[in-house]
């Protein structure tokens, strides 16, 4: 079964979402928590900060993965049989 080109809009969206996902994956914020541990500071506020930074990093990573998945779906859904 021959494939036809995906819809241009879907391609554009997928491209942009992938680009955004790559930017998320390159954020310094994803690694901040590694530098906010006991070797840097100690105390309730320090711990809360590290946890908070780790949470942000995890959520940002998840968002990057999700965007990539959306991009894939857009490309797949754009493939239609004649």
């Amino acid at each position: 079964m021959p494939l036809v080109p995906v819809a241009p809009l879907a391609v554009l969206r997928a491209t942009e979402l992938r680009r955004l996902a790559r930017r998320l994956q390159a954020l310094s914020a994803l690694t901040l928590h590694r530098f906010a541990g006991d070797e840097t500071w100690v105390g309730p506020a320090a711990l809360a900060c590290q946890n908070d930074l780790a949470t942000h990093a995890r959520l940002l990573s998840c968002e990057a993965e999700r965007l990539l998945a959306v991009a894939r779906r857009l490309e797949l859904n754009g493939v239609v049989a004649p």
Partner: peptide
Amino acid sequence: ELQRIESADPAAADTVHVARSALHGI
């Protein structure tokens, strides 16, 4: 970097929200 995370795509709305939340906290 977080300040530059923007997108008008509806699929990225949550992403932008997460980025803003991180930005605000830091």
